[in-house]
Amino acid sequence: MYDRILVPTDGSPEVEHALEYAFDVARAHDAVIRAIYVVNAAGYGGLPMETAWEGISKALREEGRAAVERVEQLAPESVEVETAVLEGSPSRVIIDEATPSSCDLVVMGTHGRGGIDRLLLGSVTERVVRSAAVPVLTVNVDPNKIDDGVDQPQVAVE
């Protein structure tokens, strides 16, 4: 049923909980994980000097490489992982990647980075859920709910 699973990551530890679900589904379906990190170039468009953007862009790309490499490190040996660092509006890039010709399922956390970023930018996950052409599995990554001592349900896919 699922051959390719898109997993956006922002590199935060909370996203690792969503990865557990993605790996479970990938193992059950012998699917490939496509882990992506999106450099949000629009968030830094007002910088006065082009050289300043180049430095920030380089740092964000390095952060992105580290984030997708972390997905590769966490993946079980039985799960193939492809990675990409892309640039653009996170929700738009994820939606563009979430096409039936590219993937069968998107697995993402309910939120990654929060706080002021979430207030200013809105919910990337919400935009993806509303607009993606393929099913989206959202996983609560709230650390207050993850570490509450209650066993999390396992994904059972037949």
Rank of each mutant, 00 (worst) to 15 (best):
E87G: 02
G149V: 06
E16M: 08
N144G: 09
V32M: 15
V136Y: 05
S57E: 13
G88L: 10
P13G: 08
L121F: 06
A156Y: 12
E63H: 13
G112I: 03
Y44C: 00
T125P: 01
A52Q: 13
Y2V: 10
A18M: 07
A75H: 09
A66C: 03
Q152T: 04
A133S: 11
S57P: 01
E69K: 15
R130M: 00
L121P: 00
P48Y: 15
T51D: 14
E20W: 01
R130T: 01
L47D: 04
A59W: 12
G88Y: 10
S131R: 15
P143H: 14
W53T: 12
G43F: 07
R130Y: 00
R130D: 03
P48L: 14
N140A: 01
D104F: 03
V71S: 08
I56T: 10
V124T: 15
L137T: 06
E16A: 12
P135Y: 08
G45K: 15
A42K: 11
S78A: 13
V32D: 13
G55Y: 12
H111S: 04
P13H: 13
L74Y: 08
P100A: 02
A133F: 00
G88T: 07
A156C: 05
L105C: 01
D10A: 05
E158T: 13
Y21I: 01
E63W: 10
S78F: 04
N40M: 04
V85I: 14
I36K: 07
S101P: 00
R27Q: 09
V15H: 02
L74M: 13
L47K: 10
G149N: 08
D3K: 12
R130I: 00
T125S: 08
V38C: 14
I56N: 04
D3A: 15
D10Y: 09
E16Y: 09
L47M: 13
V25R: 02
A75Y: 10
A75E: 07
S102V: 03
V15D: 06
Q154C: 00
P8W: 09
A22T: 05
G55A: 15
V85R: 11
L47F: 12
S78H: 05
A98C: 04
I116V: 14
S101T: 14
L137G: 01
A41F: 00
D148R: 12
P76V: 06
L6A: 07
Q152D: 03
Q154G: 00
A75W: 10
P76E: 07
S12N: 06
G11K: 12
